[in-house]
Amino acid sequence: MTGGEGTGNAALALTVNGRRRRIRAPDAERLLDTLRWRLGLKGTKEGCRSGGCGACTVLVDGRSTLSCLTLTHEVAGATVTTVEGIGRDPVGRRVQAAFARENAVQCGYCTPGFVVALTGLLRERGPKLPPERLLEDLGGNLCRCTGYAAIRRATEAVCREVG
């Protein structure tokens, strides 16, 4: 049923969105596929599957991570936050609200990656970071619809709110 790759079927545990999950997965399965097809968390999007678009961004132990280039077994025991869980974080909730309010969402396919990546950056680097630096660090997330203008407005709004 999954898009899984590799052989074997070893057990591992992950904490996903606050919930402890025990799973079995082939050795070469990507975290992206584990989340989407094994755990049903399809809010994390599959885009290019090669690290070029950022749509699959999740937080692994709080750090922004491309789930398409991460093997599930590599992060055994880690804490993973996806777009489905990011709203429990007050910063994540503000990011979601700002993206919706500022119309930084069109087709929405890049949105989970942007929301998670921006939340991770704000968490990791603190609210004092100038928005220009944040925007630079979001350069790995592609959007084909908005032209980034509304994403910039949403990011600046969140910086004002949490700063």
């Binding site: 399809k42 919706a100 929405g108 396919y109 949105t111 989970p112």
Partner: peptide, 24 residues
């Protein structure tokens, strides 16, 4: 505000890539 935005920022809309069926 767009009415699809709240669901989209939560990753709650189903795209073609997300479609699934039993026995697929």
């Amino acid at each position: 505000m767009r009415t699809d935005a709240p669901a989209k920022v939560r990753g709650r809309v189903e795209y073609g890539m997300d479609l699934e069926a039993p026995g697929m």
